[in-house]
């Protein structure tokens, strides 16, 4: 019942966003497309790191596998998109095994560092090994696009994000979602409660990679190009992490809020700060947001909601 009530809010959000192209400029829509892709990546991070507490500092690794797989398939072999994109998703899921294996032995800081190391390895490998295939430092460009125009791309990215969002949001409400969060709280106690944490972790990694794969492949075709410097980049990782964290890790709704907030913040600052100081202010705002509310907006809204409810009851 509670789920149905909350689903109503998803519906309001969905309808609202679908009507948006009627009122805003195509320029704004193009910006929102980036927000929606960022939201997909942040949700992928969230279902792994926010839920299970295995913090990934290497999510661009997964996104990069997806992007490069579909880019190379379409660029060199002319494979149609309806084949190359699913292939990219599968490749990403296979690639996530590289994250999963260290997760069997390490956790916390060490795990985060291994994932960062994987990202850096791929960054260097993509430039040096077989530059003919990967395009080397310059990457591949002129990739086929799925659809053209701001409005269709807006709907495509929103639709994918919305479906993934609702799906994951429903999932964390099941017993499976609860079981995943026991790993974050106390993995040993979870095991001694009879939970097969290895299987649960594998599921979280695969699901995260699935979402990252879809996002990475679509994003690459939206941009029409891919290059190591754009994907395996600390600032890209930074955006994903921060979107999830300042929105509220582990909540799925939070990362979506965070992604819109970050993207719009950067755009909002543009007219006032045209120069490089924009990134400084942007970074400083995110640092302050994380400093004062490490649990994110989701938590703040939740608390406000409770307060309002309490006030309502008192009257």
């Amino acid at each position: 019942m509670g789920v149905l009530v909350s689903l109503r809010w998803w519906l309001v959000f969905g309808v609202g966003m679908c009507l948006l192209p009627l009122v805003v400029s195509t320029g704004t829509l193009r910006i929102l497309v980036f927000a929606q892709f960022l939201a997909i990546f942040a949700m992928s991070w969230d279902i792994l790191s926010g839920r299970t507490g295995y913090i990934s500092f290497g999510h661009p690794f997964l996104i990069g596998i997806a992007g490069y797989t579909t880019a190379m398939l379409t660029y060199h072999l002319g494979v149609p998109l309806y084949f190359s994109i699913p292939a990219a998703v599968v490749a990403t899921m296979i690639g996530s095994i590289f994250f999963f294996i260290p997760a069997l032995r390490t956790r916390g800081t060490y795990f985060a560092v291994v994932t960062l190391a994987f990202m850096e390895v791929l960054y260097h490998l993509m430039q040096v090994v077989q530059p003919k295939l990967t395009g080397g430092t310059r990457g591949l460009s002129g990739l086929p696009t799925i659809i053209l125009g701001a409005v269709p791309n807006y709907y495509l990215s929103f639709g994918v994000m919305f479906v993934i969002g609702v799906g994951l949001w429903l999932l964390i409400r099941t017993r499976l979602g609860t079981a995943l969060s026991t790993i974050r709280m106390d993995e040993d106690a979870a095991r001694s409660s009879g939970l097969n944490t290895t299987k649960l972790k594998l599921f979280a990694f695969m699901l995260s990679a699935f979402v990252a794969g879809i996002g990475g492949a679509l994003y690459t075709h939206y941009l029409g190009s891919i290059a190591p410097r754009g994907i395996f980049d600390i600032s890209f990782l930074f955006s994903i992490l921060i979107a999830a964290l300042i929105g509220g890790a582990g909540t799925i709704v939070g990362p979506i809020m965070g992604a819109y907030f970050l993207t719009l913040l950067l755009e909002f600052l543009r007219p006032y700060l045209p120069g490089p100081e924009r990134y400084l202010i942007y970074g400083a705002i995110t640092l302050l947001a994380y400093y004062y509310a490490p649990k994110g907006f989701h938590n703040i809204f939740g608390l406000l909601w409770q307060r309002l409810g309490a006030l309502g009851r008192r009257e």
């Binding site: 017993r175 609860t178 079981a179 709280m185 409660s193």
Partner: peptide
């Protein structure tokens, strides 16, 4: 205990099936 779960939810964790599909 699992710190971010209520007593009931903690008890629930002791009753989980082995199968992910059933959990879902």
């Amino acid at each position: 205990p699992f710190g971010e779960m209520t007593v009931t939810e903690n008890i629930r964790m002791g009753m989980m099936p082995d199968d992910l599909w059933q959990m879902l």
